[in-house]
Amino acid sequence: MSTLKDKLEAGEFAITCEAGPPKGVDLENELKEAEEIAGLIDAFNVTDLQSSAMRMSSVAMCRLLEERGLETVYQMTCRDRNRLALQSSLLGAWALGMENVLALTGDYTTLGDHPDAMPVFDLDSIQLLETIERLNGGEDLVGNELKGSPQFFPGAAANPGADPLKPQILKSRMKADHGARFFQTQAVYDSDVFAKFMEELRDAGVETPVMVGILPLKSAGMARFMDANIAGVVIPDEVIKELTDASDTVQKSLEICSRVINETADLCEGVHLMPMGWEEYVPDILDGTDL
C-alpha cells in the first residue's frame, strides 16, 4: 500500500524527502536520520548513484527503510543499466516491497567520480515510464507475459526553472502521457518561476500532481555555485544577498526553504525535500511553514 499514492490521488498534500545511500556499507547514520524524521514524511526518495557518484544501490537502501516501516520512492536512472537490467531491477524492487518509482534519465557519467565508466542510456526516462506501464500491465517490453505483475506508482522529474520553458512543458506532458502519475521538481527558490511553470503545465492539460523541490542552501557560496552551475536552478539575487547578510546562515537558509514552501504550497500537491546532509533540519523547515 502506497501512502504517497493514496494521498496524492485523494488530493491531500504529500511530503517526500531524499535519502542518499552511503559510499560504503555503513548505513547507521542514514537509517537513524531517516527514522528520526519519519513521522513528518510520507516517503523517502532513495537516490540512484546521485550525480553519477558510485554508492550503495538504491534498491538495497529502499529495502532497509521499508523493513523499518518507512515508505520509499525507488529512484531509477537509465545511465547504468540496459533495458534487461532495468526491467529485472524493477521486478526485484517490487518483490522487495517498493511501490513508488521515480523514473529518471540520470546525469551523464563524466559528471561523477567514475568519469571513464560506460554510459548506457539504452532507454530514456519516457521509455522507462512506458516500460513500467508495460510491467504494470502484466508484460515486459517486448510483450512476453509476466508471472505475477507489479503495480508500481511511477513518477518523474520536472524542472520549473528550465530555460526555455516550453520544451520542458511538452516533455512533462509526454511523461504524463506515458505513465507518470506524479512529478517531483528540481530545487525551487523563486516562487514566481514555479507559479509560471505550474500555470503553463496546467494550460497544457497536465493535471498530474506536482511536488515542489526544496533544497536548503548551506551558504551564499553554495547558492552562487548552484545558480551558475546546476542546470535549471535559478536563485534570485535577493536570496543570495539574504544569505550573505545573515548572521546565522543556517537559520536564514531554513527560513528561505519554509518561505518557498508557503509561497508554493497552494499551487501544487506536495513538497519534495532534498536536505543533502541537513536531514536534522527537516523538522525546522517544516515547523516554519503553515502546513
Binding site: 540520470g106 542510456f121 526516462s125 516533455k171
Partner: peptide
C-alpha cells in the same frame, strides 16, 4: 546520451 524523446534535466 542519445535520448530519443526530448532533452534531459
Amino acid at each position: 546520451k542519445g535520448l530519443l524523446n526530448g532533452a534531459c534535466g
